[in-house]
Design a binder for these strands. Sequence first.
DNA 1: GGTAATTGTTAATGTAGATTAAGGGATTTA
DNA 2: TAAATCCCTTAATCTACATTAACAATTACC
Lengths: 193, 193
Amino acid sequence: MDYAPILNNIAKYVTLTEEEEIYFTSFLHYKKVKRKQYLLEAGDINTKISFVTNGCLRSYAIDKNGGEHVLQFAPVGWWIVDMRSLLNHEPARLNIDAIEETELLYILKPDLDALQLKYPKFERFGRMLAENAMATYQHRQIDNMILSAMERYSNFCTLYPSLILSLPQKQVASYIGVTPEFLSKMLNTVVVK
Amino acid sequence: MDYAPILNNIAKYVTLTEEEEIYFTSFLHYKKVKRKQYLLEAGDINTKISFVTNGCLRSYAIDKNGGEHVLQFAPVGWWIVDMRSLLNHEPARLNIDAIEETELLYILKPDLDALQLKYPKFERFGRMLAENAMATYQHRQIDNMILSAMERYSNFCTLYPSLILSLPQKQVASYIGVTPEFLSKMLNTVVVK
DNA sequence: GGTAATTGTTAATGTAGATTAAGGGATTTA
DNA sequence: TAAATCCCTTAATCTACATTAACAATTACC
């Protein structure tokens, strides 16, 4: 098993000793999910936090008419979780599935708790990861409050440059909060002269 | 100075020793802000994290037409910050001001950093606070993706029961993402028969 | 205590984006 | 390799909510 990608991710925040690395990786589980296969279904309890090493996951919620609304994409190097479900053992509101065949490493919440109690460095890592996620969600919310659909599309291209090429347009539309029909019109109605 | 409210807030997550309490409170600053007075202006660097002990603060962003959009209210017992500005020393996108005369305690980022390095318990507290905030923002985002204006209003009443009575309706409208005119119409168009 | 500013309401009109529908092209999958 | 599914586009119609405006009722503050 190649743990380099996940260890590199952690190394952005804290420097682990060899002992800590070994202890940490002993808790990791490997999983491969096929296209469209669920990692988490709304209603279930989210018990793990996952790190993508290959492929791409997405989290989304479903409205009362059955429409899908993408909260997040997780390409290689991203973490994904329904945090409220993980923290409070509540049924998840999010579905997580694979956009394409995807490989990931995950750690179970009880193991993560034990890890953080034993090595404060993982408290520190967890804090920084959560702080960054919070900052990202704060500014996503601001974007949604004050930007137009076109500006949100531009932001998307900056945030996920690797995805804009590979992702079906309807997934992008779902993320920025418009219908696929509207996104198509928006992108094809070039402002001429 | 009465540090009981902020220490009780921390005690929800971790149990401090007397030494840790004394060290922590030695970093706290007290501030009183009048109605409409700024604690943070967009464009400035957010250098502190604030805890409200009396009154109520709000954070909001301004769109290109000058319209205000409320991200968060912080009544007694809540924390408030522009996290991206704090973490990356970037200019804040949020304004923070007081809805009414407000008293607060704040800690500067460098002092918090020192505190967390010295006592891992504050890493733990910071992690939990950030995780909870992240979970809240995740689900706020989901709400905005899949709920109607009326449902978002109901959620608001549940989230901020103390505010729904004291807050001007236009502030509520700004938080749930509609105009004051629309909220007024929505609440007064009672479904009869 | 009086004037100014803020707030809530109603109503007419405007608009960004949704919905519905339909056709053709590309990808899956059996 | 064929059938089925998925994807993108265009266009007509529709709707939730914004905008503008005007007035009365509060509330803040000099």
